[in-house]
Simulated assay, not measured.
Amino acid sequence: MGDMATIRRDIGAGHHFIFDDTLVSHPNAEMFTPDFWQLQDKITGQAKGRGTTIFIEHEGQRWVLRHFKRGGLVGKVLSDQYMFIGVERSRPFEEFRLLEYMRAQGLLVPVPVAARIHRRGLIYRGDLFTLSIPNSKDLHHALCDKPLDKDEWYEVGRALAAMHNCQVYHHDANVRNIMIDSDKQIWLIDFDRCEQRQGNSWKQGNLDRLLRSLHKEKAKNPVFHWQESDWSACMNGYREAVK
Rank of each mutant, 00 (worst) to 15 (best):
residue 3 D to S: 14
residue 8 R to E: 05
residue 17 F to G: 03
residue 21 D to P: 13
residue 23 L to N: 04
residue 24 V to E: 03
residue 29 A to W: 05
residue 31 M to C: 09
residue 41 D to P: 00
residue 43 I to Q: 08
residue 49 G to S: 08
residue 51 G to R: 10
residue 56 I to M: 08
residue 57 E to N: 13
residue 61 Q to R: 12
residue 65 L to E: 09
residue 66 R to E: 06
residue 77 V to M: 14
residue 80 D to V: 07
residue 88 E to D: 15
residue 90 S to I: 07
residue 95 E to N: 09
residue 102 M to W: 09
residue 105 Q to E: 04
residue 105 Q to G: 01
residue 105 Q to C: 06
residue 110 P to C: 06
residue 118 H to K: 15
residue 118 H to D: 10
residue 122 L to P: 01
residue 124 Y to H: 11
residue 125 R to M: 04
residue 126 G to I: 10
residue 128 L to P: 04
residue 132 S to E: 07
residue 142 A to Y: 12
residue 147 P to A: 14
residue 147 P to I: 13
residue 150 K to T: 11
residue 151 D to G: 00
residue 152 E to F: 00
residue 154 Y to H: 14
residue 156 V to W: 10
residue 157 G to V: 08
residue 164 H to I: 05
residue 164 H to C: 03
residue 165 N to Y: 08
residue 166 C to K: 05
residue 166 C to Y: 03
residue 177 N to I: 07
residue 184 K to W: 03
residue 190 D to S: 13
residue 197 R to T: 03
residue 201 S to P: 00
residue 206 N to A: 02
residue 210 L to H: 06
residue 211 L to I: 09
residue 212 R to D: 13
residue 214 L to M: 15
residue 215 H to T: 00
residue 221 N to C: 11
residue 223 V to N: 12
residue 231 W to H: 09
residue 231 W to D: 04
residue 241 A to R: 14
